[in-house]
């Protein structure tokens, strides 16, 4: 698949006098996994929130599946899903109840089967009847990912998906995401501070700094451009630069 799934044009976000995102333009093709990287405050999360319609851009346009997000929010979000390590599902509902609610919201055809399949996939089937608030943070993260895959999204948006996972589970989650992407042709846009995630998972990386894109390409291309063999070095160099343009 090569068609453009997500197109961001001249996106701007001002909060009063503060510019969170400035003149951001990029696109994501079908089947790609794109990493949105940058230090805290670089504008990644604000960008993701604008792509999901949670925050209204000051200027610019977001087009997903060829439709304008502001005009066709509901039909677009039907084919999108989202998970973040910092967003939870209602803590006093059981795992299966939470997933049933979202399966209904997304209109999943066979919710019972789908829920069982996802719980098995993320190795939390034994927690099906456990109250969500009683799960460890790693288990909650996997539950969030189950929620995010309920509707077999054509575009999956992830905000630091492995932030609370140990290296073993993070590795498993990366492999699951890669497998689902291969099987379903899913497109993924993800933020992460875990460079291993990025190198292993992402086909392409977009580095943001002070609200703008400062580097774009595969991890190898970016490391070559910065003359290093470590993406972490690139990250640190960009994060410590005071200017918007990286030499």
């Amino acid at each position: 698949m090569l068609e453009t799934i997500l197109k961001v044009e001249s996106l701007n976000k001002q909060f009063g006098n503060f510019t969170a995102v400035e003149d951001l333009s990029f696109s994501v093709r079908g089947g790609e996994i794109v990493g949105l990287l940058g230090a805290n405050g670089a504008g990644k999360t604000t960008t993701i929130h604008m792509l999901l319609g949670l925050t209204k851009p000051t200027a610019g346009a977001v087009t997903i599946f060829g439709e304008n997000l502001e005009e066709s929010r509901v039909s677009i979000l039907q084919r999108v899903n989202f998970a973040s390590s910092y967003v939870h599902l209602p803590y006093n509902l059981r795992v299966v109840e939470n997933l049933k609610v979202f399966a209904k919201i997304y209109g999943v055809a066979k919710p019972g089967e789908k829920i069982d399949e996802l719980l098995e996939m993320f190795e939390i089937a034994h927690l099906k009847f456990k109250t969500s608030g009683m799960l460890s943070s790693g288990e909650q993260t996997r539950l969030n990912l189950c929620k995010a895959l309920l509707n077999d999204p054509a575009l999956l948006v992830l905000d630091e998906p492995t932030a609370s996972l140990d290296p073993d589970l993070a590795d498993k989650v990366r492999k699951i995401l890669k497998r689902v992407k291969e099987e379903k042709g899913m497109t993924v846009l993800t933020t992460s501070h875990n460079m291993l995630d990025v190198v292993e998972l992402c086909d392409r990386i977009i580095f943001m700094h002070l609200g703008a894109i400062v580097a774009e390409g595969s991890s190898e291309e970016i490391m070559t451009r910065f003359g290093t063999d470590s993406l972490e070095d690139v990250f640190i160099r960009i994060a410590r630069t005071k200017e918007k343009v990286i030499a």
């Binding site: 999901l52 319609g53 949670l54 929010r73 509901v74 039909s75 979000l77 039907q78 999108v80 899903n81 989202f82 973040s84 910092y86 967003v87 939870h88 599902l89 209602p90 979202f102 919201i105 997304y106 929620k147 948006v157």
Partner: peptide, 10 residues
């Protein structure tokens, strides 16, 4: 903290 899940859904 479920509000984002609701408003990022259709």
């Amino acid at each position: 903290r479920n509000l984002l899940n609701i408003f990022t859904a259709p």
